[in-house]
């Protein structure tokens, strides 16, 4: 009966990469993972929305995050994170061209912008704490710190990955054949960015 190796029997045109769909396993896995992450951040965002005005027990009237938001400051850090997405695509683009120096520059820029964002977040957290909005104050603040903290951890993971790529590039191990690796790290990075686009509007800008 008809059996054949993959190399010889390809019954549809789109299977010509060897995988049934012609797409990369890893990239597909990353996209499935990002789809799943939507449910994770959705849960955290919904929790915050549900709790955003809950100040805790009656007369004490504790402060909630919306009382102490510093919109101009957050806008700047949102802009920084947004621009890190640009440097990320530029890094990938440079690697595709085989321009290793530019790749390294843009990778480092991306990680740095991410670091600036994280620094801004740490500053914001400490300011909030000073103004009496602590993690344990009330449901609103617990939900706020958890949501933005989860996002911050994601950004930090991304920075770790970017730095790993940077080191690999310095050691000469990042070549145009690794574009997919960079692209996948980029997908993760952009995802963290779009989550922040959502958070910035829904959590910060839309009034309570």
């Amino acid at each position: 009966m008809a059996t054949a190796t993959v190399d010889t029997a390809l019954d549809t045109a789109h299977e010509d990469h060897g995988s049934s769909t012609g797409i990369s396993n890893t990239k597909l896995a990353m996209w499935v993972f990002l789809g799943s992450e939507c449910l994770l951040f959705g849960g955290l965002i919904s929790t915050y929305l549900l709790y955003k005005t809950r100040r805790g027990p009656g007369p004490t009237n504790l402060a909630i995050p919306t009382d102490v938001f510093d919109i101009p400051f957050t806008s700047v850090s949102s802009f920084v994170l947004l621009m890190s997405s640009l440097t990320m695509v530029l890094a990938l683009s440079a690697l595709t061209r085989g321009d290793n120096a530019a790749t390294r520059t843009w990778l480092l820029a991306t990680a740095t912008l991410g670091g600036v964002f994280i620094g801004g977040q740490v500053y914001e957290f400490t300011t909030f704490l000073r103004e009496g909005v602590g993690f344990t104050s009330n449901p609103a603040s617990s939900a706020f710190f958890t949501l933005t903290g989860f996002h911050g951890v994601h950004v930090s993971m991304g920075i770790l990955m970017l730095m790993s790529l940077y080191v690999a590039s310095v050691q000469g191990n990042l070549t145009p054949k690794n574009t997919e690796t960079v692209e996948i790290v980029g997908l993760y990075w952009h995802f963290v960015d779009v989550v922040w686009i959502f958070i910035f509007t829904v959590i910060y800008l839309i009034p309570a």
Partner: peptide, 12 residues
């Protein structure tokens, strides 16, 4: 960590 997600007395 004593957060307040499910503490009804804190309004959760």
């Amino acid at each position: 960590f004593d957060s307040q997600f499910f503490n009804p007395e804190a309004g959760a």
